[in-house]
Design a protein around this nucleic acid. Structure first.
Lengths: 353, 353
DNA sequence: TAGTTTTATGCAAGCGTTTGCTCTTCTCTT
DNA sequence: AAGAGAAGAGCAAACGCTTGCATAAAACTA
């Protein structure tokens, strides 16, 4: 079933059918209605490939996801983010092609492949290690794209970037613990990983701003896994007993810490407050329920899509981007539960700049 | 950059370039090499859309995922499955378009949309509630597709189905617990949900086969969440204390159960063995580590892709499917850890039929 | 009424490939 | 040496849609 078939059924030309279905103003109301009715009866849908060839837009967005098989919460976070992205794009009737950055068999860069083969109208890059080469490639090809990544090093970036403000997340935790009277906090980091460093830094700065000596704060290096946190706690019990709060860089480590603390006979939250990060479903499953920082992933997905659509529109209208690239920090929220005390109200989210 | 450009650069015709790049035997070795070299230098990639129009195959597979925002382990499972699917398809240089079954904004059925618009060469449907209408549609359109779903009711299905054998998973748990000497097991189900029912049924049958009275087995109805399991344990302590093992229909409930058991002063595994299902990363994070049933999701993904590729090949060669539809059960494996006792060897997986 | 707009439709080119067919030019046969 | 066959290359149609341009009909204008 093609435009031609519909045209014959309607006793008209192919162009008239095309225009009728695309709501062109060049068509009279009656004709449009008649043609559309016939198309609807036969369940006709225009061939997206042919249309793509004619219009050079295919109605598909490439989504490049990292392949973190290893990290449970990474997988979860990306899956949720991807769901949100799809939801946002559906509104604009766009499909998503998902790919890893590299093809593990051919070794080819999927980003370049998708762009060069013209299979997509735009790209959403989720947490890529975006090398200079790739950026140059994307700029040169003039393909609309946005990044969802970590807080950037530099201020002026050549692309649009959206990220969750981990630093503020850490600070929120600090503020809350301070207000709860915790004066000797201890951190469990996720190693040298970027996000983790930011979370810890925000936490430290929060305490410093309240007059605490930043050098007295202890940071133990975990690896984002629960057992790593348990081990750290067990091996550093003397340090632990001098503390009154533990901030873990993710929920999984907070969980591991709780297990070890309990084994050591410490009561949570009475003797030790515990706070996690990510607000995974794990947080509500624990007893006591875990206070944690909620990532603004729905917001990130929504704004990233919105911007990408804008860039695509500009690309179609002017052949190039018009609005300048922009870096956008999205604010996390602290979700206060039982693991850090009995307070029930949460600190209101910081208003966005 | 198009075929035409390369042709001009090579001083040859468009068809020669096309055939050179596609390794047609109609081209001499020298010409092919020369053309390929020129194409490579300029980083030429054929336009997938134009090729799609000419060949009616686009190199894209549709993957329909369920949108279970609600269930943590569902999200995780689908994300892992999706990763595995993408890996398998990459080998064949196929991209994946991912969609929910329905567009939440237009209300349109994404399956039908993708098929009618010719955006895909085949479909992988993950746990859809596949109504008669959709099946009829797919059969009529002759589009290659496979299902990844639950154990089916009927034997003869008109499509290819791959599923994890939950029944056997439950039975493995039963066999193991029996061998460990547990004589009074108790189940926590995930409600009336299909998978859960199968898991519990297999468990019950395992005990029955060993001579236990099926009617004495207690099944408490949870909802797959950790708190639901905790509550059930707390509210049924008299029943619990008469039991010596708990089988939960997923890891999250096993976890909730462990928390509640511990609060009640019961030691795991000495006084109570606990087994979960799904082998999520949670299982290794718990103390003691949770014995659980590992889903054969990598295998499902691999086999489903393999079959889909075969169907697509048949479709291209004969215009229709040739090999008869087949239902394939994949066997889960019991991963024995500490939560059910000190045994270190696991029961070997049941060999596939 | 004749000329000028406006409105609605159709024609045909073009998007970038693939591929059946034709046309050369060799290379064998006999 | 002539004819047949094979091998390599090119022409042009086709895939199904969009869209600039030409055209015809209708609706004004003076």
């Amino acid at each position: 079933m093609t435009l031609k078939d519909i045209a014959e059924l309607a006793g008209t030309s192919v162009s008239t059918v095309s225009r009728s279905l695309n709501n062109s103003p060049l068509i009279s109301e009656e004709t449009r209605a008649r043609v559309r009715a016939i198309a609807a009866i036969h369940g006709f849908e225009p061939n997206a490939i042919a249309r793509g060839l004619a219009t050079r837009t295919v109605g598909t967005i490439g989504v490049i996801l990292p392949e973190n098989y290893d990290r449970f919460d990474g997988l979860l976070y990306n899956a949720a983010l991807h769901n949100d992205l799809r939801s946002s794009l559906e509104r604009a009737e766009l499909d998503t092609i998902v790919a890893f950055k590299r093809n593990r068999f051919s070794g080819r860069d999927n980003i370049e492949k998708l762009v060069m083969r013209k299979k997509i109208d735009g790209l959403i890059l989720v947490q890529p290690e975006l090398d200079r080469r790739s950026v140059k490639f994307l700029e040169q090809k003039q393909i609309p794209y946005v990044l969802i990544q970590y807080p950037p090093d530099e201020q002026k970036l050549p692309y649009d970037l959206f990220f969750a403000d981990s630093w503020t997340g850490g600070r929120l935790v600090a503020q809350h613990l301070i207000s709860r009277g915790c004066r000797s906090p201890l951190c469990i980091s996720g190693g040298k990983e970027r996000q983790s460093l930011q979370r810890i830094a925000g936490f430290r700065d929060g305490y410093t701003a309240a007059g605490f000596d930043p050098d007295t704060m202890i940071v133990l290096d975990g690896d984002y896994s629960a057992p790593s946190a348990s081990t750290l706690i067990r091996e550093n019990l003397p340090l632990i007993t001098k503390s009154d709060a533990i901030f873990a860089a993710n929920d999984l480590m907070a969980f591991g810490a709780m297990e070890a603390l309990r084994s050591a006979g410490l009561r949570i939250p009475d003797e030790m407050a515990v706070v996690g990060y990510d607000d995974t479903p794990l947080a509500t499953a624990l007893i006591p329920q875990l206070t944690s920082v909620h990532q603004p992933e729905e917001e990130i997905a929504f704004l990233a899509c919105e911007r990408l659509l804008k860039l695509i529109k500009e690309h179609n209208d002017y052949g190039r981007r018009v609005s300048p690239p922009q870096t956008t920090a999205l604010q996390p929220r602290l979700i206060v539960r039982q693991s850090c005390g009995s307070v029930t109200s949460s600190i209101p989210p910081v208003t966005r700049p």
